[in-house]
Design a protein around this nucleic acid. Structure first.
Length: 424
RNA sequence: GGAAAGGUGUCUGAGUGGUCGAAAGAGCACGCUUGGAAGGCGUGUGUGCCCCAGAAGGGUACCGCGGGUUCGAAUCCCGCCCUUUCCGCCA
């Protein structure tokens, strides 16, 4: 959620920034208008309440002395009639302003490239050399099915399209990747968590998935105010919802493995085959809570943390900084890591590392107490995939495939594979 | 799922219709005391919003959340959420 004061005090600048995020000026104008009326309405309501409170005290005083208070009671009755109308309008305006604010995305940091979509994204760096094949590399779903380690048909039989059954060495490899990633992050100071796989509406509002993306993204549980976890960013960030953290505890670094569930409504036709775009995928998530002045640097180190996994797996990748039009709702600045996929002869997103500044903290009411001033301020929250496990599996299968249809296991994973060094 | 108890400020905890933003204590800040520290003493110590050009100041709201009763609600009533204990059911 944006700071309404910032919007009010920087109206034109804010509208420009919103335009870069594909939000027209109408929403901001609506807030300005409603805010103005809200101030007038609140003033009237406050004055009426003041009068009522004063009279009520007088009534109390009179009655305790046994005097007659009928006249005062008649006056207060008149006030109450008017109060009903004014207070109702006040509530309506407050709710409307809040609802609008909840649907406005975060504003970009000044160094984010401005643009409407991914064409304005900028490549930042590359690591690793894509392997030269002396045969035509196959796609991961082809490799996986042939080896019998990925079963798309039976996954679909069990749950439908987009739900995958992993078998044997495939199941083991998925688990190996999860454990390898968690071990890597925890040894670098991220505290491991195991989180609920369902999340409440409040939590989702806190991180920004609701109210705006309910239908496209979320699976809701029938008869419950619960949703399947769409990303461990939600449970991890909400750990500190409605809390005040001591400044000397910051930055807090947490990590968790969790399956992510996405409806992916509206993405029909994209990546329909294989593991790339599915309704349930595993992910190891990184989340940080930091002081505002540190969040920039913390984002860089989180990016490096996610990169580390790919470097250890020796998978080539590049880093992209997303443009204002391509960033996620809650992000003020976002890097994508894209891994090399031989079958696509190109790079594919495998991680997203976002600085959400105080946007989520304001929604979720996550603050810290500044030691010097004793005042509470909103923290900055950051999140990043470290990494999307399913897509890492894709990258391993494709980059490590052999001419005869097998897959070599990256050296760092062998200990996690009970010594298995190749799937054949 | 059933029964009971309970949710108050940074924390502990009092408060069952009026003068309660809320006792007391702890913590924290400042000052005094001391050669210094400990200790003691004193003072202060929430947040949002609105009015005000701003400071000062004022108003209003906030005692889990939402409604209701009342001239007046932390206090009474209803619904919901959460916590604890016991029972049931299970992994």
């Amino acid at each position: 959620m944006l700071d309404i004061k910032y919007l009010l005090e920087n109206r034109e600048e804010a509208k420009e920034q919103l335009a870069s995020r594909k939000i027209g000026p109408a929403l901001a104008e609506k807030i300005f208008l409603e805010y103005e009326e809200k101030c007038r309405t609140q003033k009237e309501a406050d004055d009426l309440r003041n009068r009522r409170n004063t009279i009520s005290k007088e009534i109390g005083a009179k009655k305790s002395k046994g005097e007659n208070a009928d006249e005062l009671m008649a006056e207060v009755a008149g006030i109450k009639t008017r109060m009903e109308t004014v207070e109702a309008r006040e509530k309506e305006l407050d709710a409307s302003i809040r609802d609008t604010l909840l649907r406005i995305p975060n504003l970009p940091r000044p160094d984010v490239p401005v643009g409407q979509d991914e064409s304005a994204n900028k490549e930042v760096s590359r690591w690793g050399e894509p392997r030269k094949f002396d045969f035509t590399p196959r796609a991961h779903h082809d490799i996986g099915e042939t080896l019998g380690i990925l079963d798309f048909e039976r996954g679909a039989k069990i749950a439908g399209h987009g739900y995958i059954l992993y078998r044997g060495a495939g199941a083991l490899l998925e688990r190996a990747l999860i454990n390898f990633m968690l071990d890597t992050h925890t040894s670098d100071g991220y505290q491991e968590h195991f989180v609920p796989f369902v999340v409440s509406e409040e939590s989702l509002i806190g991180t920004g998935q609701l109210p705006k993306f309910k239908d496209e993204m979320m699976y809701q549980i029938e008869n419950e105010n619960l949703f399947l976890n769409p990303t461990a960013e939600v449970p991890l960030t909400n750990i500190y919802r409605d809390e005040i953290i001591d400044e000397d505890k910051l930055p807090i670094k947490v990590t968790a493995y969790a399956p992510s569930f996405r409806r992916e409504a509206g993405s029909y036709g994209k990546d329909t085959k294989g593991l790339i775009r599915v309704h349930q995928f595993n992910k190891v998530e990184l989340v940080k809570f930091a002081r505002p002045e540190d969040s920039e640097a913390e984002q860089q180190s989180m990016l490096a943390q996610a990169e580390k996994v790919l470097r250890l797996l020796e998978l080539p990748y590049r880093i992209i900084v997303l443009s204002t039009g391509d960033m996620g709702f809650s992000a003020a600045k976002c890097y994508d890591i894209e891994v090399w996929l031989p079958s696509q002869n190109g790079y594919k997103e495998i991680s997203s590392v976002s600085n959400c500044t105080d946007f989520q903290a304001r929604r979720a009411n996550i603050r810290f107490r500044r030691a010097e001033t004793k005042k509470s301020e909103f923290v900055h929250t950051l999140n990043g995939s470290g990494l999307a496990v399913g897509r890492t599996m894709v990258a391993v299968l494709e980059n490590y495939q052999t001419k005869d249809g097998g897959v070599k296991i990256p050296a760092v994973l062998v200990p996690y594979m009970r010594g298995l060094s190749e799937i054949k």
